[in-house]
Design a protein around this nucleic acid. Structure first.
Length: 359
DNA sequence: AATGCGTGGCT
DNA sequence: TAGCCAAGCAT
């Protein structure tokens, strides 16, 4: 551990020097606009820079200010977010944009404590915005920083436990630069992202290999300590794509399940793979719909992987005659191809519609 | 405190 | 391939 002020000063000096020579010129580092910084931080949560960058550019282009985002429909925000995953980020960001406009006249709170009260902003994101945009001397501790600190100082406490968060935070407070906290935080994060990488870091060229606990004891692969992930759950989705004319019946997903706020089709979940739609005819609602259409199976079981779920998904395309007078179940409505293009959809749904040459 | 929430790249 | 990982947060 760095025990005195002189060592901390020396560490910060070397860290900043490394950063100035090695950092990437990312778009959101060229601004002190809290809105843009906020957007970039939300996008980058659990998301790689390469995947998030195009989304950052689209959002800044479509919604240049917090006022533009607040004025948008949630549906359009989700549509722009489509493909990034963890859609609550988009819903919370939209909610918070409206709050910032309504309560603060569009001005962001300027301290981490105030920022952390907003929906979608936890300790990390609040600290990042406070330091990057407003120069607050507070450490922003993300997964990169946990890794760097765990290895440098030999901290074996689980980074995801409450105890671990406290312990790492206590050390981080000692480290953060008060002269230039913004660069310090950027540097710690970038150092973790580029040099102190999760797998097989190149410690020969590391500026801190003289003081690093993990390098000294060859413990890079053991640190940081993280709890094991929960087992993957198998689920089986059976989708019915009801088409009438050129329109498809879609519904907004509600509740606590995956893809909340996104649109999909009439769906039945089963406990195992279903080969024929015949079994669904037992349900009177399904019978009334399916018996009126021509059913075509899309001959493929899609495997869609989420963090804790493996979706095994089958689609049946159901052509409903124009003169048929079926009543759609609650929440399902027919949408034109143009409308469907503009609806936010799970990437799986978008993929299937493209493969079927509908979109 | 533990779990759920997406998607894509890499090995 | 199956599993791990990627600038977390809400409940």
């Amino acid at each position: 551990m760095l025990s005195d002020h002189l060592q901390v000063f020396d560490f910060n000096k070397k860290l900043k020097s490394w950063y100035l020579q090695n950092h990437r010129p990312l778009l959101w580092r060229q601004t002190s606009d809290p809105y843009k910084i906020w957007l970039s931080e939300i996008i980058l949560q659990q998301t790689r820079v390469a995947q998030g960058t195009p989304y950052y550019e689209k959002f800044i282009s479509d919604y240049p200010t917090v006022f533009d985002l607040a004025a948008a429909d949630e549906r359009d925000v989700l549509r722009l977010w489509q493909g990034l995953g963890y859609y609550s980020r988009a819903r919370n960001m939209h909610f918070t944009a409206r709050q910032i406009v309504a309560e603060f006249e569009g001005k962001f709170p300027q301290t981490a404590v105030q920022l952390a009260k907003l929906k979608g902003l936890g300790n990390y994101t609040a600290a990042a915005i406070a330091s990057f945009a407003f120069g607050e001397a507070i450490p922003a501790i993300d997964g990169n920083v946990y890794r760097v600190m765990a290895r440098l100082f030999g901290i074996f406490t689980d980074t995801l436990s409450n105890e671990g968060k406290k312990e790492f935070a206590a050390v981080a407070v000692q480290l953060v630069s008060h002269e230039d906290p913004a660069t310090y935080n950027q540097a710690m994060i970038e150092f973790g992202a580029l040099q102190c990488v999760p797998v097989a870091p190149d410690c020969k060229v590391c500026p801190f290999n003289d003081i690093c606990y993990a390098f000294k004891f060859d413990m890079q692969a053991k640190l940081p300590v993280k709890t094991k992930k929960a087992a993957v759950r198998n689920r089986f989705f059976n989708y019915f794509i009801l088409q009438k004319g050129d329109q498809l019946a879609m519904q907004e997903r509600k509740g606590k399940d995956i893809w909340k706020g996104l649109y999909d089709f009439l769906m039945t979940e089963s406990t195992e793979l279903v080969d024929s739609p015949d079994v669904f005819f037992d349900d009177i609602v399904m019978y009334n719909i399916l018996s009126k259409g021509r059913i075509r199976e899309i001959p493929k079981v899609y495997q869609h992987l989420l963090t804790h779920q493996r979706l095994n998904v089958r689609f049946w395309w159901v052509d409903i005659p124009m003169n048929s007078d079926i009543n759609l179940p609650e929440g399902l409505y027919f949408y034109s191809p143009e409308e469907i293009h503009s609806l936010p959809k799970p990437i799986l749904v978008d993929t299937v519609l493209r493969e079927e040459d509908y979109l």
